[in-house]
């Protein structure tokens, strides 16, 4: 990931800043700048998600991608936030603690790094609530 690409998404990665259509009440993460339901009648504003939700499904990664080898095995889950949208994120806990439907909350963690001398990527992961 380039420095600029990471930098542009800092509010979303650090603080789960998405958007909310005040016309239909739908929430979006990642943020949408146009409501696909209300189209031009939609009014979009920024929304900070509470960071609480539940695990819809998950997998345990044993064969990690480059840069994530030290974290394996780790839990990757689809998390449905309480406000509606779903996102993919790591749930930091033992794999035996993982369960579909479990409640989770967001935490600030290191997501990865470019290299030993490159930049460090920080952002949101989840832990059991």
């Amino acid at each position: 990931m380039t420095v600029a690409r990471f930098w542009r998404k800092i509010p979303n990665r650090y603080n789960l800043i998405g958007t909310h259509c005040t016309t239909c009440g739908e929430h979006y993460f990642p943020p949408r700048q146009m409501c696909p339901t209300c189209r031009r009648d939609g009014k979009i504003e920024n929304h900070k998600f509470e960071g609480k939700g539940e695990v819809v499904t998950y997998t345990v990664i044993h064969t990690a991608a480059k840069g994530y080898e030290m974290q394996a095995p780790y839990n990757l889950a689809v998390i449905k936030l309480d406000e509606g949208p779903s996102l993919t994120g790591q749930v930091v806990c033992g794999k035996e603690e993982m369960e579909i439907g479990m409640r989770v909350r967001s935490v600030f963690r290191k997501l990865g790094e470019e290299s030993e001398k490159g930049m460090i990527y920080y952002g949101t992961k989840f832990v059991p609530e």
């Binding site: 930091v92 290191k110 920080y122 992961k125």
Partner: peptide, 16 residues
């Protein structure tokens, strides 16, 4: 620390 924790993540959690 967790594998994904350092002085920055700890500082952020304490600050929050």
């Amino acid at each position: 620390p967790g594998l994904d924790e350092d002085a920055i993540t700890i500082a952020v959690e304490a600050a929050r």
